[in-house]
């Protein structure tokens, strides 16, 4: 079957995209994953200037979940420019989604302007980081006005479609989604990690992560993520990149039925190795062919159509 799918006017060779935060530091890595079957690549979050991460340990993984506090390390826009240039040279036909981040709302304008010059196909905005101007360092993604303000500022300085990555750690994800769409978001990525969570080493009684707490992802959060994607798809009419614990082709199809057009692959790289993209896609195709599905676009939001159209769960 033709596995390609359109997302905001960009053709992806298949719906499986690398989640931001996994691997993607260098052009070589992006290209390697593209050649191993990724349909799209999302970069790690790019800051305008250098940003130090946390000490090790930064990632804990087991069969049930992944807990991470890497601390969003990055060398800043100058290094990113070099990597973009190199990636374009590889000419592999796999779109690049550039993920950007800032500590203050104004930072998002500066990084968007810088990234805009590089003309990536899409920009994903990480608003799950703490707002350093907020008294309690509350993430932008947890407040409708803050999320909308950042969206509007980013949108005002670029014509490249922007996707806002939402945090699941809110009671009102539908309102947040509506706020960012009204502010100009072209698409939504859902979800960022749950939490924070805490993992304790019982021999020392110490938290294991250097940052003590970290965001939780992986198979354990999948049903929660599918529900958030469903809720967002019911609330707004923009395409969604759905993610959270996808390990199999069936998982990916589940996200699409909940409302995702593209599906993120992250923890699957731990569970199924670097062949994860290819394995998951093969499983999706196998299921589609057995089920008489001719194109992935047919299954997007399928569960919404089998339920009462106005239903919320």
């Amino acid at each position: 079957m033709d596995t390609s799918i359109d997302f905001l006017g960009v053709t992806f060779p298949n719906p499986l995209v690398l989640c931001s935060g996994y691997l993607g530091i260098t052009a070589s890595t992006w290209d390697n994953l593209a050649r191993k079957g990724a349909g799209g690549i999302t970069t790690k979050s790019i800051w305008l200037n250098e940003h130090k991460g946390h000490n090790n340990p930064v990632i804990l993984a087991n069969e049930d979940f992944i807990c991470n506090a890497v601390g969003v390390p990055d060398a800043g826009i100058e290094k990113a420019k070099e990597e973009f240039k190199e990636y374009l040279k590889r000419n592999n036909g796999v779109p690049l989604i550039v993920n950007i981040i800032g500590g203050k709302a104004d930072d998002f304008v500066a990084i968007t302007e810088a990234v805009n010059e590089l003309k990536p196909q899409l920009i994903e905005v990480n608003i799950s980081c703490p707002n350093v101007e907020d008294e309690h360092g509350k993430p932008f993604a947890t407040s409708c006005p803050d999320a909308a303000r950042v969206t509007k500022m980013v949108k005002s300085v670029t014509d490249i479609p922007i996707i806002i990555k939402l945090s699941p750690n809110v009671e009102n994800i539908q309102e947040i989604a509506q706020a960012v769409v009204e502010a100009g978001a072209d698409g939504i990525t859902a979800i960022n990690t749950y939490g924070p969570g805490l993992v304790i080493d019982i021999d020392s009684a110490q938290p294991i992560l250097a940052n003590k707490v970290g965001g939780v992802s992986g198979p354990g959060i999948k049903p929660l993520a599918v529900k958030k994607v469903f809720d967002i798809a019911a609330a707004v009419d923009v395409p969604i990149i759905g993610m959270g614990g996808v390990k199999t082709g069936r998982d990916a199809i589940e996200f699409m039925m909940a409302g995702a057009t593209l599906v993120g692959i992250g923890s699957a790289l731990y569970y199924r190795g670097e062949a994860a993209f290819k394995i998951v896609l093969d499983e999706m195709v196998e299921w589609c062919e057995a089920s008489g599905v001719k194109s992935f676009s047919e299954i997007v939001k399928k569960t919404h159509s089998v339920l009462d159209s106005s239903s919320s769960l």
Binding site: Y22, L23, G24, S28, T29, D31, K44, V58
Partner: peptide, 14 residues
């Protein structure tokens, strides 16, 4: 274990 990407080399990306 191959998730953070910090040790990936050019040009293979592994």
């Amino acid at each position: 274990f191959g998730l953070c990407g910090n040790c990936c080399v050019d040009k293979t990306g592994d």
